[in-house]
């Protein structure tokens, strides 16, 4: 089982915005390209975070109202 989780976001812009928010909360992340077959519309970007931070990261992103999905 991988030790990272990927949170898909609407675009690179949102991925970078989310990355800043997570960074401010002390959560490290990396912007990654999400495999097109995993997102309904095709090309998408997301954040890779450690599995231990995933739920906290999701909670922070959820609060902003950004479209997102845990893959």
């Amino acid at each position: 089982m991988p030790n990272t989780s990927t949170i898909a976001l609407a675009s690179m812009t949102y991925a970078m915005k989310a990355q800043e928010l997570l960074r401010a909360a002390g959560i490290g992340s990396q912007v990654v390209r999400v495999r097109p077959e995993l997102t309904p519309g095709g090309c998408s970007y997301g954040l890779s975070v450690s599995r231990s931070d995933a739920q906290r990261a999701l909670a922070i992103i959820r609060k902003t109202g950004m479209q997102h999905r845990l893959i």
Partner: peptide
């Protein structure tokens, strides 16, 4: 093209 939702024929709604 803008690298987002490339499989769709319409522009993203955001």
């Amino acid at each position: 093209g803008n690298g987002v939702n490339s499989l769709e024929v319409t522009m993203p709604d955001f």
